[in-house]
Design a protein around this nucleic acid. Structure first.
Length: 272
DNA sequence: CTGAGCACCTGAGGGC
DNA sequence: TGCCCTCAGGTGCTCA
């Protein structure tokens, strides 16, 4: 998946199509996603509004006190098309508006999910209730991060990928942010000084902002909801660049699996 | 609390 | 050309 910037890009693609438009027809072809998908009839007749992103979830509200929760998982994407367009393999959910536009949830690996839940329960929903502050808001700041890291001996990279600590920092942007901050990914979280935290907060925000501005990354599975490819991957400084020269000092980039995830850093620029 | 392992599922890419 | 193997952006569970 799509990390936060890709979700943000997807949100901006789908919002203009669905916001305020009635769902005239829905089709659920494959209901077995990470969690079971509602029946097609539960989408029909709804008008969604107040689209927004929380962590890597896209949320929206509709009538009868019902809200939408959508997650792209590892390989999910939303495509914008019409009902005239041939249905592709892995097009699991098709929502057609009264305007004739169609949004499709396409997800080969089916780690994503699409749910309808009672709006009053949304903030208490198990998927959302324990999520930490959004990284691009003032709530994510030096004091917050420093306090949150106290007592944690886990690697800082593992810490910032924990959605309970901060929302939406995935595997790619964790490596990229730590490179910009010149902090070694294995540095124990509780050894970061306030100064480190100030730098890291700034670098996470800067990295995400840059990626959003670039329209999100495009790895194998991602395309914009319009079907165009993003291009932030051309800007990766360390991710996926094992053995290649550091863009700052030309030292070969190191790689190691940390917390089950591939992790990249510059052994010279980033201090433990 | 921590880390390791596994699970969900399919497709892409490399090696031979 | 094709088979076999490994790996992948995310989460969430169990176990020691």
């Amino acid at each position: 998946m799509p990390e936060l910037p890709e979700v943000e890009t997807t949100l901006h693609g789908v919002q203009p199509v669905l916001e305020g438009q009635r769902i005239a027809h829905a089709e659920v072809r494959v209901p077995t996603l990470r969690l079971p998908t509602p029946q097609a009839s539960e989408f029909e007749g709804r008008t969604f509004h107040n689209f927004r992103r929380r962590n890597k979830y896209i949320l929206a509200e509709s009538d009868t006190n019902t809200s939408l929760i959508l997650h792209l998982g590892m390989s999910g994407r939303l495509t914008l098309t019409t009902s005239a367009s041939p249905v592709l393999k892995h097009d699991h959910i098709l929502l057609t508006t009264t305007q004739g536009q169609q949004v499709r949830f396409h997800d080969p690996r089916r780690f994503g999910l699409v749910l309808l839940v009672p709006t009053p329960e949304l903030t208490h929903h198990p998927l959302l209730r324990d999520i930490g502050p959004e990284p691009l808001t003032d709530a994510f700041n030096t004091t917050y991060l420093h306090n949150a890291l106290q007592g944690k001996t886990i690697p800082i990279k593992t810490a910032i990928m924990d959605g309970k600590l901060v929302a939406g920092v995935g595997n790619i942007y964790a490596s990229e942010s730590l490179f910009r901050a010149k902090i070694h990914p294995l540095k124990p979280a509780n050894t970061l000084t306030k100064k480190h935290c100030t730098t890291l907060v700034g670098c996470i925000q800067e990295t995400l902002h840059d990626a959003i501005a670039a329209g999100g990354s495009s790895l194998r599975d991602f395309s914009h909801s319009e079907g165009q490819l993003g291009y932030f991957q051309h800007s990766f400084a360390v991710y996926g660049r094992k053995g290649q020269p550091c863009p700052v000092c030309a030292t070969p980039i190191a790689a190691q699996v940390v917390n089950q995830r591939n992790t990249f850093w510059c052994p010279s620029c980033q201090k433990a």
